[in-house]
Design a protein around this nucleic acid. Structure first.
Lengths: 203, 203
DNA sequence: TAGATTGTTAATCGATTAACAATC
DNA sequence: TAGATTGTTAATCGATTAACAATC
């Protein structure tokens, strides 16, 4: 399968949400014209995007809801469930890792680790010892982790995750990471996100 | 001032972080070559981006740290402090709204509202009555809000915020919003975000 | 059939990259 | 001066948009 352009990839999840609405409304077919209207986009763009997924529509009717959903999910890799590690025990990490939206997209947090290593009495028993991670990652075939440790530990922890075979890292620490290109990192910096939103309006 | 291209805008916050590192290291000048090396980007791109901010470098030395920081912050609108409303009282909203990163980018959450309207006994006194929002927004000149209510209330709450003069909305509900184009909305869907990260690697 | 919608091919637009002269 | 780095102009690349034939 050809790899889709990143802009297309980013729009697919939105289409998935529209699809859910349409299915809830009892529709069997959806049209690019209709979606474009709802999204404020052009029908051409919607159709071009859907073409990337391999979905084929029928003139006058549109795209079959069930087929389209399968196709989009295949592209997003959410046809199979994805098991994920949570690394760090802060409130933010727990909030995001436990968010229902992750489940909806096929993700499941199977274990939590704490590199800060509070293994003293009273420690949360659901948090696994940090040393166990490489072994478990290998045995369970985990390649995705949510990094939510405190900033000062970010780089070092990330390196050890990379060494443990983690290939996709959702970096919530706000600390820029330097990792080998084999590891895909999604950096989150909340203030920066909000800042770019503002400038869109101001401009 | 000309509005910068969105891709450039999105890279600016990263430059700001590098700048902080460099300042901490006691440097007075930074070069595009150096930054490109650290970011895995090209010097040309860095220079082109910085050109948008209006910063002027000196050959052989690079860009003056203090000047560059001013210029970038001006573009990001973080030269002035930005007051923000938090709407909704869930854990996620509190985590993100209270995140130090927001402060670093010049944001300040000045009031919290709860449209779910738990004004019964025992209610949190730091949460203001929802009815007061339009009046306060006007008096304080607030145009930015973080929307963190439960999904079922999202659309209706957003509409009332728009009516109250909110022009930038950070939508953490995971619910797609339909609002007039005058309101800039940054939609967050955590599962979708994680999903696009994965496909980057898989592809 | 008529009309709406798809899918494809070409044109436009914008961002990134390259080349190179200017300069401290 | 020599060499590193900037800034500008041109070339490339990719994504979006437009035009239109195909089809149910």
């Amino acid at each position: 399968m050809v790899t889709l352009p990143l802009p297309v990839l980013r729009r697919l999840p939105t289409y998935l949400l529209l699809l859910t609405e349409d299915r809830a409304a009892g529709r069997d077919y959806v049209s690019s014209t209709d979606w474009a209207g709802r999204l404020g986009a052009t029908p051409i763009q919607v159709r071009k995007d859907l073409a990337w997924t391999g979905a084929v529509g029928t003139p006058k009717k549109g795209f079959a809801v069930t087929d389209l959903e399968t196709k989009i999910r295949e592209c997003l890799g959410t046809d199979a469930r994805r098991d994920v590690f949570l690394v760090g025990t802060g409130a933010l990490g727990r909030c995001l890792a436990g968010h229902p939206s992750l489940g909806r997209h096929g993700f499941s947090v199977v274990a939590t680790f704490d590199p800060a290593g509070r293994c003293a009495a009273g420690a949360d028993p659901s948090v696994l010892p940090w040393e166990k991670l490489p072994e478990l990652a290998r045995r369970m075939g985990i390649s995705v982790a949510i990094l939510a440790v405190e900033p000062s530990l970010a780089q070092k922890t990330a390196e050890r995750l990379a060494a443990a075979g983690i290939r996709s890292l959702w970096n919530l620490t706000g600390q820029t990471l330097a990792l080998p290109p084999a590891v895909a990192v999604l950096e989150e910096d909340w203030g920066a996100r909000l800042a770019t939103l503002i400038t869109q309006t101001a401009g």
